[in-house]
C-alpha cells in the first residue's frame, strides 16, 4: 500500500489511531508547501531588493517587518522556504537512493561484506550528524547543491540501518524461504517479496528523517554553509538578524525560526501519526 492510501483511508473516519497527528501534520505542511510553491505569485516584494524602510516592525505594509537592508521579511520567508525544501528534498532523495539499495543488498546477501558495511555505517551513524555535515560543507564550499550532498552523507547510514534490519528478518521468514526453495531468482525475491514489506517502515523513516534534515539544513545555513547573501534562507536570515538582537529587534529572528520549527514539526507529526498507523505494536505501550 502506498502512503496516499493510508491518508485517504482516514476520510472514512473509522477512528484510526494517530489520525490526529496525521491531520495536524498535514495542517502544518500543506500551507507551508503552498507558500513555497506560490512564492513568485504571492510574494509582495522582491526578497533580495533593499529599500529605505529599514528595520520596520511588523505591520500592514510589511507583515513580518523589514531587516537592516530594508528587505521585506515576509517575502524572504516565502522564497527562503523554496531553498530549504530544495536542499532537504535533494538530500533526502540522495541518501535514500544510496542507503536503501545498500541496506537491501547487504542484509539479503549477508556474509563478510555485509558485516563490514554494517560496522562502517554504524560508526558513521554514531558520529554527530551536524558536525559531519559541517566538515563536508567546509571542504566543499557554500552552495545549495553542496549542502544537499553534505546532508545526504549524514543520513545514508539511517536508511541503510532501517533497511538492513527488517531485510534480515524478512529473509528468515517462511515465505521468503519458500520462495528461495521454489528457485525464484534473487532479483524477484528482493523486489516482489522484500521491498513491498519494507514500504511502511521506509515511509515512516522517510518522513521522520525529513523532519530531522530540515533542522540540519537550518543549522548548516545558520553557520553560513548553504547560501550566500542576498539569497533568502531561513537559517541564514536568523543568523543575519542576530546582531540586532541586543537592540531589541525581535522580529528579525522570531519569524525565520518559527518557520523552521513549523516545517520540521509538520513532518514530525506526520511521521508520528504514520508510525502509529503502520505499526500496531507501538499502540500497546
Amino acid at each position: 500500500m502506498r502512503i496516499i492510501d493510508y491518508i485517504l483511508r482516514l476520510r472514512t473516519g473509522l477512528g484510526y489511531p494517530g489520525k490526529g497527528f496525521i491531520v495536524a501534520g498535514l495542517a502544518l505542511l500543506v500551507p507551508l508547501l503552498l507558500m513555497a510553491l506560490l512564492a513568485p505569485l504571492i510574494s509582495p516584494y522582491d526578497p533580495t531588493k533593499g529599500s529605505r524602510d529599514i528595520l520596520q516592525p511588523p505591520g500592514l505594509a510589511h507583515f513580518f517587518g523589514t531587516n537592516n537592508l530594508g528587505q521585506d521579511l515576509f517575502s524572504r520567508i516565502l522564497w527562503g522556504g523554496r531553498v530549504v525544501l530544495t536542499v532537504v528534498l535533494v538530500s533526502t532523495i540522495l541518501s535514500a537512493a544510496i542507503g536503501v539499495p545498500l541496506g537491501l543488498l547487504s542484509g539479503y546477501l549477508g556474509g563478510r561484506i555485509d558485516r563490514a558495511l554494517a560496522m562502517t555505517m554504524d560508526s558513521i551513524y554514531a558520529f554527530p550528524g551536524l558536525i559531519l555535515a559541517i566538515a563536508l560543507a567546509s571542504v566543499l564550499g557554500p552552495s545549495i547543491i553542496n549542502a544537499a550532498a553534505a546532508i545526504a552523507v549524514v543520513y545514508i547510514p539511517t536508511y541503510f540501518r532501517m533497511t538492513r534490519g527488517p531485510t534480515l528478518q524478512l529473509k528468515a521468514s517462511q515465505y521468503v524461504e519458500a520462495a528461495i526453495a521454489t528457485g525464484a531468482p534473487t532479483k524477484r525475491i528482493i523486489f516482489k517479496h522484500i521491498l513491498p514489506n519494507l514500504a511502511p517502515t521506509l515511509t515512516v523513516v522517510f518522513t521522520l528523517n525529513t523532519a530531522d534534515s530540515i533542522l540540519t539544513e537550518a543549522g548548516l545555513s545558520f553557520l553560513g554553509f548553504v547560501v550566500t547573501p542576498p539569497t533568502p534562507d531561513w537559517g541564514f536570515d536568523l543568523k543575519a538578524g542576530q546582531p540586532f538582537l541586543p537592540a531589541g529587534y525581535w522580529w528579525l529572528i522570531t519569524f525565520p525560526g518559527i518557520f523552521i520549527i513549523l516545517l520540521s514539526l509538520g513532518f514530525g507529526l506526520l511521521g508520528e501519526g504514520l508510525n502509529e498507523l503502520l505499526s500496531p505494536k507501538e499502540k500497546a505501550i
Binding site: 536568523l238 543568523k239 529572528i253 522570531t254 520540521s264 514539526l265
Partner: peptide
C-alpha cells in the same frame, strides 16, 4: 516531546536571550 525535539537551537536560544537578557 515532539516540539522540544524540533525547537531549532539558535532560535530557542535567541528567544531566551531576548526575554531574559534584553527585556
Amino acid at each position: 516531546g515532539l516540539i522540544a525535539w524540533t525547537l531549532f537551537i539558535p532560535w530557542f536560544g535567541m528567544m531566551l536571550q531576548i526575554v531574559f537578557g534584553v527585556w
